[in-house]
């Protein structure tokens, strides 16, 4: 066990690993970027991880289309 890593106490509600709420298990297509040729790869759950253009097998998730605020510290 790494002593340096932090793990705060979990609240009693969170003790079970699962989150509350209703699961949404529809498959969505998600865009990824190929690490080799930077082309966009659209994958649906269960698809093999492979770039359609060059066959490279490392993909990165595209940056989310959200505005993210940072505190200027």
């Amino acid at each position: 066990m790494n002593k340096e890593s932090f793990s705060p106490s979990l609240d009693s509600q969170n003790l079970s690993a699962s989150a509350s709420g209703v699961a949404n298990n529809k498959s969505y297509a998600v865009k990824y970027l190929c690490a080799n040729c930077s082309s966009k790869v659209v994958l649906i759950r269960g698809d093999p991880v492979r770039c359609k253009e060059c066959g490279h097998r490392v993909l990165y998730k595209e940056r989310a289309n959200y505005t993210v605020q940072f505190s200027a510290r």
Partner: peptide, 12 residues
């Protein structure tokens, strides 16, 4: 989380 069950890049 994004729709694929992985965290969205750039989110805290």
């Amino acid at each position: 989380l994004g729709p694929d069950g992985l965290g969205e890049v750039g989110k805290p």
